[in-house]
Design a protein around this nucleic acid. Structure first.
Length: 530
RNA sequence: GGUCCAUUCGUCUAAAGGUUAGGACUCAAGAUUUUCAUUCUUGCAAUAGGGGUUCGAUUCCCCUAUGGACUACCA
């Protein structure tokens, strides 16, 4: 039994999409479950599409999610370039493996599985146009290759001359004629394709001395001893080619098993989830915030306030489920429960609402003091920061662990994200000076002033050491005077909060303190007299 | 156009031939409450259509429809 080795092999052409993170996650879970290795390999054979920063973005994103590669990335978060015991297959960046691919392409030519093609891109374009005008699809295959410019249609001397004197040629795979390729996919089962529908894919390009994806991918998977290839559904159509390449090299015995994951779909409408959907519907499609070369910012789950555990949990359940009703999983639990057999075949439509729900669940799992710490970090960088503090409690007191923990304890059931604490708790840090008009109109009447005066008396004669006794004092006063509970309470609430929201009145008074509470009630009385 | 893949409540999904087709998110109603929330209870809501196979199909097969991917000297 070989050691289980899987890889995540993204192309550094931009920020890693959440669908890509899911692919990486499934690879990771699959490897870890069997105590195998999860490898990161950068597939940058297309220099034209290279985007600076994208590689680091991929590494940082995986790190944030806790999906750490065993191989390919060093402890400093850099792609490994030289071989060592831990990273025996370095370099892990295909552009730096350039020199190893040519011999494999040559080998295929020698064995008759590939050939040289000299058609210029203009030639190819012209042929495609011609076919298109006849409404026929152009496939570079056993039929059309005879009329194209290649080592199969040209004589040996001319072929040799062109190889030596030109440098725009390529090596193409010689797709066999009329053969049924039988394949197996770990998620989808048996798949059959006739080779007549496939074309002679380019494997290697003289112009930039680099292989294309197909060759580099197969060679590297072989060299890196990959046992399972878990990748996106977009690769399913090239699976026959990949099978045939393993066969041509004679590597069938160690050919990895394949699993193709379905795509993540738009929350609404048709098609796969794209960056634009996030902008349009207001949710992130990337794990981390990304700024492109034009300075456009794409939001990230991290910056939007998601916990990585929630993000990972949500992603894991988008296309996989354990067969039980459990929905909340830590990364360790996922590692134990995950199985490719239970991965869903059909595309999963992404639901931003459910993503929020996951975050809420994780937020509630945190202790009040953990939340307090996270809340403090948000609070000090918010607009509120400069205004925090009131007469009886200066800023230091309000930002103390004790005070913030109390605030979080009172409010944690009302939020899905830490940043939501701020608009919900502003009155706990700043004295309100504006009052919601509709609330004022609804509850204020000619008796309000005297009512509030009596309540001030009740509060000031109470020690205010616990919320229960404050509550009792207020309710007793209300009962003694025969006021309506709702009116009295809401009027006090208006004074303390400025609007109609928040936890119990007594809890608020206990938190902000007797002095501040009385001051706020006086403020409202003064306000009514203006 | 061609090839391949897919199709259960609005969404994520369970039921690997026999269930009143289950759960979660969303939404709605009710209860609790001084407010806003929370919480609890209840409700709405699905096997794409048509043929087979079978005593019996959500489940197996075929056709159609729909959706998706691919069809580059991109990955």
């Amino acid at each position: 039994m070989r050691e289980r080795r899987v890889r995540f092999a993204p192309s550094p052409t931009g920020p890693l999409h959440m669908g890509g993170v899911r692919t990486a996650l499934y690879n990771y879970l699959y490897a870890k479950q069997a105590g195998g290795k999860f490898i990161l390999r950068i597939e940058d054979t297309d220099s034209h599409r290279f985007v600076p920063g994208a590689e680091q973005y991929i590494i940082d994103s995986l790190k944030w999610c806790g999906i750490l590669p065993d191989e390919g990335v060093d402890e400093n978060g850099k792609i490994v370039e030289t071989a060592s015991e831990k990273h025996p297959h370095a370099p892990y960046r295909q552009s730096q493996r350039k020199s190893i691919y040519k011999q494999y392409a040559d080998e295929l030519v020698e064995k008759g599985f590939a050939y040289y093609a000299f058609d210029s891109s203009e030639d190819l374009e012209a042929v495609r146009k011609e076919y298109e005008s006849r409404k026929e699809p152009f496939i570079y295959n056993h039929i059309s290759r005879k009329s194209m410019k290649n080592s199969l249609s040209l004589d040996a001397a001319e072929t040799q001359r062109l190889i030596e004197t030109t440098d725009n040629w390529v090596i193409r795979f010689k797709m066999p004629e009329n053969r049924i390729v039988k394949m197996n996919d770990l998620i989808r089962g048996e798949i059959e394709v006739n080779t007549d529908t496939l074309d002679d894919k380019v494997l290697w390009k003289k112009a930039d001395q680099l292989p294309t994806y197909h060759l580099a991918n197969i060679v590297d998977d072989h060299l890196m001893e990959i046992t399972e290839v878990i990748r996106g559904e977009e690769w399913l159509p090239s699976l026959p080619l990949h099978y045939l390449l393993y066969e041509a090299f004679g590597w069938q015995d160690t050919m990895p098993r394949f699993a193709h994951l379905s795509l993540l779909l738009k929350p609404d409408g048709k098609g796969k989830l794209s960056k634009r959907d996030g902008d349009r519907l207001g949710f992130p499609v990337f794990p981390l915030q990304w700024t492109n070369s034009e300075g456009e910012i794409s939001r990230g789950y991290r910056e939007d306030g998601y916990y990585p555990e929630a993000f990972v949990n949500m992603l894991a359940l988008l296309g996989w489920n354990p067969g039980t009703e459990q929905e909340l999983f830590s990364l360790e639990e996922l590692t134990k429960s995950f199985s490719l057999e239970r991965v869903i075949k059909s595309g999963a439509r992404f639901n931003p609402e459910k993503a929020k729900w996951f975050n809420q669940e994780y937020l509630r799992k945190r202790s009040d003091s953990e939340l307090a710490n996270e809340f403090k970090a948000e609070l000090v960088k918010s607009d509120l920061s400069g205004k925090i503090g009131f007469a009886s409690k200066p800023k230091e007191v309000l930002l103390s662990d004790t005070y913030l923990t109390e605030v979080c304890k009172m409010l944690k059931d009302r939020v899905s994200f830490i940043k939501e604490f701020i608009p919900l708790s502003d009155y706990m840090f700043v004295t309100p000076h504006e009052y919601a008009q509709n609330v004022y109109k609804k509850f204020w009447n000619e008796n309000s002033c005297s009512m509030l005066e009596k309540l001030i008396d009740a509060i000031s004669s109470n020690p205010c050491t616990d919320a229960e006794s404050i509550e009792k004092a207020i309710k007793d006063t209300i009962a003694e005077n025969g006021w309506k509970m709702g009116v009295a309470m809401n009027t006090v609430r208006l004074a303390l909060v400025g609007e109609s929201k928040g936890p119990g009145i007594a809890e608020i008074i206990h938190l902000i303190g007797k002095e501040e509470s009385i001051a706020r009630i006086r403020n409202l009385i003064d306000f009514s007299k203006k």
